[in-house]
Design a protein around this nucleic acid. Structure first.
Lengths: 238, 238, 238, 238
DNA sequence: CATGAATGAGCGTTCATTCAT
DNA sequence: CATGAATGAACGCTCATTCAT
């Protein structure tokens, strides 16, 4: 059974959108910051940006979005002034976008290579669940930071700027085609693919929580429970 | 098969905890507000409190925790001064506690009566899922407000004051005994009850989202998908 | 050598002034309080007033004028609402006046009986120093409360309402005639009586501080040092 | 008779303490102000700080500690926003510390050079009294500001942060060694040096008050009265 | 005699951002 | 590339006081 090629994370698309947004807003960066897009950024500037993004991730994960202020990030990054942040990123929103891009990109790189080569729908589903839960388990700060941003970042009118989490959406987008393909090939039973994809995504998130709560579940145990659940919930009634 | 009596929502316990906390802190209500607990509150005061809590819920749901300021609540409640809020609730934290108590109480009243009388584990599970998803679907602001508080309210040291959502915890607490009873009676297969409870709870939340997203799923459809999934995921392998 | 009759503390005069002020302002006590002066106050009201004044004194002494709020006084007095304070005293300023009156009256009663019957200027001076330092040592809260009020209470224009402390003024007023009489009778040398009176008053206050600081000075030691100093500083050069 | 070298004002030590405190707390200057200690402050920043400190001194002297708010200081300094104050000083407490340091430093510079070269205990005592009373008479605002801070500034627990005035302590510390040296050399009689030092300090303060009160005492008169009093109170009985 | 409800003004502090070099 | 200086707006909270019974 052929699995659609579009199964990969769509982080690349998201990244391009973000870059375009950044480029668009460069015109109003009146305070005098770096004027170019990512491609023509100097080495030093890139390093500073990475340093600040890393500090932002840790702050978000530990203190939450509401407490993630320029002052706290400054402190954690060990830089001299909050001015450096607005210098490199313009506004807070753009910094948050940069965090999202960074995290999404790293997640994509880690996950995409794990899911190649599966031919059955169940195999693809299982591999993807495995890859996602493992990455999440190993990058809790990134997961938490992403969630904080997506659930709290709003535009001037008060609307959430990232309706659902970026990788969440990407992951759901990645899961749904697999589910649809499985239904078409007769491997899976009939169900609402959108809801099932959401549920599996939520189950993965729940597993992360479950692993941290006593009595702790080990990563392999967790993966086994999840893949079993996915198999039972999707397979054709015998 | 007898389902444990403790299946009911434990909101009562949570409420008592909150009340105790409120009572304990009465001593530091230095700004001069009503000093009594809920039991000895006057009619006018109760009405004002309800009015403010309602405004807080709407504000939380619409604008998020970060934008839920006394000023916004004041405006939405149509009261004359933010002082009225701190007069009746002391601090913002205590207002948030009051919101949580109010929402939890209303949810409990609505749900508990729906799940009585079920004798089989699957029946109890199905009834509870049905009741919870329906209540959530009909009280989206309350659900959203609760989530905003639980995910963002922190104490002075930066620790989340409500680790998991109150009804979330209550719901998970309510689901797990059913699952355990089902396993003991042989009605359910073996799985980690903690993770399964979390997953089902997450699936319910996902369903709320799914209903709001086009192409929309109707409430009955949603309930059917969820109960089917629960049945398949838990039943003994044939 | 006859000592002027006016040596006694003039607290009576101060009290009358305060009472007049209270009486004058009764007309604008719009919130509905007791309408009469001290003479026609009921027993219960007097008790309440005393209770509140006592709490105010303790609060002033412990926390200072800036932290002496109606809320704190309420707490310490164990009453139900700050409303009781404004009910009995009208404004904060009038409460402070009541504190001053109470403390001044008690001081006068304690001191005046100790200094009767002295015939020489040095005897009168010594007796008064003794009486004052002893009273202060035994009523530290009252001393402190009085100082807090006199140094910090201001009227609407920002002017201190009690230029020097009431008993301070009273004490200085009481000391100066003794000094003047001593100079006229030739018992004392020539000096500025105003400055000397102030200095002796300050020395008494300093002694209070000195007794509390290690290595502690006992009360009798303290009195001896002070009276010796007064004798040496005032006596006619041999 | 050799007077101990340590007679000089210990303002230097106090200044270092304050600087250390400032340096320690730099970490929590979260609002984004100048982060450096006094030594590495820019010219513009130093000027602004001086301007604000001067306005704070005048406000403290005129309106008292309780009325010394950022808004009042802003107005008197003629600056655009209260934010400028917290920008340069962080918190109100640190501004108060800066006032204390500034005043103490200026007092030290003015006084210390006046008391050098005295060889007898009485000479040193007289010179110091003269210098102190003159400085105080010429800097009434500074004296008053210092007193307001020391009597009213409290930490979070309500404890006075500057138990005795900085220069008061320094002055008392400066007086006591002179007194002790005079006793050891036989120049002075026996008395409690701690109490005598306190008393002389108090007498100096009293003199400031006396000069402002009609019938006014002139500065030279005042100095003469004080030095006479000190001589008579300390000299060996003939 | 006592209380409940309400209130406007003001507090110090923190926010992200902009204007200068 | 980096920094220093400045800023208006908003925050939660506390103040003494007044209007009702």
């Amino acid at each position: 059974m052929p699995v659609p090629a579009s199964v990969g994370l769509n982080v690349t698309r998201l990244r391009n959108e973000l870059l375009m947004r950044v480029t668009e807003t460069d015109g109003r960066n009146e305070a005098g910051g770096p004027s170019a897009g990512a491609s023509e950024r100097s080495l030093a500037a890139s390093a500073r940006r990475a340093q600040i993004v890393a500090a932002a991730i840790e702050t978000l994960a530990e203190s939450g979005h509401g407490q993630t202020t320029f002052a706290r990030i400054k402190e954690r990054a060990g830089i001299s002034s909050t001015r450096l942040i607005s210098y490199h990123f313009g506004t807070k929103g753009e910094l948050m976008d940069a965090v999202l891009e960074e995290v999404g990109l790293r997640a994509q790189q880690a996950i995409s290579q794990r899911v190649a080569g599966e031919t059955s729908a169940l195999g693809a589903l299982t591999a993807r669940i495995e890859a996602q839960v493992e990455w999440a388990a190993r990058n809790p700060s990134s997961v938490r930071a992403m969630a904080e941003i997506c659930r709290n970042e709003r535009d001037a009118e008060g609307v959430l700027r990232h309706g659902t989490e970026v990788t969440a959406r990407a992951n759901v987008d990645a899961l749904e085609p697999i589910l649809r393909a499985g239904q078409e090939s007769g491997e899976f039973r009939q169900f609402d693919t959108g809801l099932m994809a959401l549920t599996l995504k939520s189950a993965i998130d729940a597993a992360i929580v479950r692993m941290a709560r006593p009595p702790r579940l080990s990563l392999p145990q967790c993966v086994r429970e999840l893949t079993t659940l996915a198999r039972l919930a999707t397979r054709r009634e015998p």
